[in-house]
């Protein structure tokens, strides 16, 4: 397999608060990677470092053999990376359509954009009905679809998802899990999935990394980790 993303000994901090310490992880093309860990473990910070929203104080990040730490977020996402941020962060005062078009900001192929909109409506038919409504008036699940749709409109090869299941009803969580699997299987998209819902994340990922207070404390094949005692203890809430 070919290496898509490589984090080498990344450390990051907010002001003087250390958030990541010596984090190394990688994503191969076509992989779904899960990042799991408790509140404040540093999961979002890893995604922020990859996308350039925070600059690592040490270490290197390579994307397809190019070093990207130090680049601005807009420069990094132009290398076909897209992120669905924690808490959705849709534009509440814009219509659903405007939100989706913002996702296609860096593209100029009008026909391709329209085609991708249509494909998105097949995936999320509800977005089509809501197209001209302000995104802020949508339900939580629909907003998450807008957030994912916005990211997909960028046609990423690497998709970063930060807690897409947060605060959503179980059947919506299932729908999103299915979407993630489809994107990976049908389109070969590489995905990093950050989740507190560790069980869901381990079920749909190939490999996983477990974080604790800014450090990677465990990593391996997701299927194995699901039955790993340490993982059960820390991330799956004890014996099941």
């Amino acid at each position: 397999m070919t290496r898509l993303l490589d984090l080498r000994s990344i450390s990051a901090a907010y002001d003087r608060v250390r958030a990541l310490q010596d984090v190394s992880l990688h994503v191969d093309k076509g992989e779904v990677i899960a990042l799991i860990g408790a509140n404040g473990a540093g999961k979002s910070t890893i995604l922020r470092a990859i996308t350039g929203l925070i600059r690592p104080v040490a270490g290197e990040i390579h994307l397809e053999s190019e070093r990207i730490d130090g680049l601005r977020p807009d420069q990094i996402v132009r290398r076909n990376v897209a992120m669905v941020p924690e808490g959705r962060r849709i534009y509440p005062l814009m219509t659903v359509k405007e939100n989706l078009l913002m996702g296609a900001y860096k593209r100029s192929d009008k026909a391709g954009i329209l085609q991708d909109l249509e494909r998105l409506f097949v995936r999320f038919p509800r977005l089509k009905e809501r197209l001209s409504q302000s995104a802020g008036s949508l339900s939580g699940g629909e907003q998450q679809m807008v957030a994912i749709g916005r990211a997909l409109m960028a046609r990423p090869t690497l998709l970063l998802l930060d807690e897409p299941s947060l605060g959503l009803a179980p059947q919506v969580v299932r729908e999103i899990a299915r979407t993630i699997r489809d994107l990976n299987r049908e389109e070969g998209m590489s995905i990093i999935l950050v989740e507190q819902n560790s069980r869901m994340a381990l079920k749909i990922s190939n490999r996983a990394y477990g974080l604790s207070t800014g450090k990677i404390v465990i990593s391996g094949i997701s299927r194995d980790l699901l039955s790993d005692d340490r993982i059960r203890e820390i991330y799956l809430g004890g014996a099941v």
């Binding site: 977020p73 807009d74 992120m83 814009m94």
Partner: peptide, 24 residues
Amino acid sequence: TKPGRVLRAIAQDRDVTALQGVNI
């Protein structure tokens, strides 16, 4: 217009707009 939409987007969420590829 597209630039108008981008300006409104920045007003609502700077970081997220940078993540769409906009040079803030």
